[in-house]
Computed example of a mutant assay.
Amino acid sequence: MKSMDTVEFLDRLIQTPSPSFHERKAAELSLSYLRQFSFERAWIDAAGNAVASNYAHKKGMRPDLLLFGHLDTIASPMPYWRESDKIHGRGAVDAKSSLAALFSAAGTADVPYRLMVAGVTEEEATTSKGTHHLLTYARPKMAINGEPSNTNGVTVAYKGRMVVECRTHGKASHAGMASENPIERTFEYYAKLREHFPLHKNRFENVILNLTHISAGSQDALNVVPETLDFFIDVRLPPSMKNSEVGNVFRRLAPQGVSVKVHESLPGVETDVNHPLCRSLVGAIRDAGLPPRYVKKHGSADMNVTMHAGIPTIAYGPGDSSLDHTQHEFVLLKDYEMAIGVLKKAAKNLEVYF
């Protein structure tokens, strides 16, 4: 395969479909790109991550700095097209442009410390398999997670996430009879939750909950009261709140006949703005002529995983995160190329800390 420049690699990466659990082709393309540089090692690991290091990494060795982003995208496809100044396509924002910027910056960074870069799998799934596996053999001293922050943003915090599965039990009966209706009981429960966690403007310290799936009865039997109703609630909570406490609220407010299970529980995280990671990246953004800003996101990312493992982490990358998971993803090439320069400079700034 002929060598690729930074833009060609990004273009090909966006054109390579890689929904969660199907990242192999994107990993192989990434490995080919990483092998263009003078890394000591480049490989695909057992979780399907594309990994490279500027030293001969062996299990148990600690990279000083890990640059990592995700290979996968959501499963919903969208058209790809290229303009002179931008690329449209699934993953253009979330988060292939950030990942490609990390690869390019790491490949050209001349630093004396141990540097590792990785494209990880299953970030968009509930598993975060790639990052969890990576940490079993490479536990860095600090990390930068590739996620969109509009090129001048330093993401210092993410909310945590809980996925709550509920089942409301009733009594199957003819719709002409007075009965224990699980649909109505679910409405009552959700009203209690909304009273406790009201709708609000997007303040970071508030809990956000949304009903994302509901299933009961059949359109072929509209005269039957269903026996059960199943529903899922996605919950986002700030680092200041414990997942266990919020989970207990869901259980406490559940009326008789409603069962509650918490399937995923990822704590919220926040990095001190005085940490060397923040200072190094802020300085690099200023050197690029941009006004730096700190960002706190209402979603979650693999930064939650690394921070929960005790690894100081921030997130950075090109692209407008309000386009995440939409049919309108695009990245400006000038922002992508500027992000590469910012990351290289940030890596250089970190030399004094290792």
Score class of each variant (00 low, 15 high):
3 S>H: 13
5 D>G: 15
9 F>V: 13
24 R>H: 09
30 S>Q: 05
33 Y>K: 15
34 L>V: 13
35 R>A: 09
35 R>S: 13
39 F>C: 13
45 D>T: 13
45 D>Q: 10
50 A>E: 03
64 D>A: 12
72 D>M: 12
77 P>F: 14
77 P>N: 11
80 Y>L: 08
100 A>L: 12
116 M>C: 07
121 T>W: 07
124 E>I: 12
128 S>K: 14
131 T>Q: 06
134 L>R: 05
136 T>Y: 05
137 Y>D: 00
140 P>T: 07
141 K>R: 11
146 G>Y: 09
152 N>H: 15
157 A>M: 02
157 A>L: 05
159 K>E: 00
165 E>M: 10
169 H>G: 01
173 S>N: 11
184 E>A: 11
185 R>E: 00
185 R>K: 15
185 R>T: 02
186 T>C: 07
195 E>K: 15
196 H>P: 04
206 N>Q: 09
211 L>M: 09
214 I>W: 10
217 G>K: 09
224 V>D: 01
226 P>T: 08
244 S>E: 03
245 E>W: 09
250 F>E: 00
256 Q>E: 03
257 G>I: 00
261 K>N: 06
267 P>M: 08
268 G>R: 09
270 E>F: 04
278 C>P: 02
279 R>N: 04
283 G>D: 01
289 G>M: 10
297 K>W: 04
308 H>Q: 06
311 I>P: 04
317 G>D: 01
317 G>E: 02
326 T>P: 07
339 A>I: 06
348 K>V: 00
354 F>S: 08
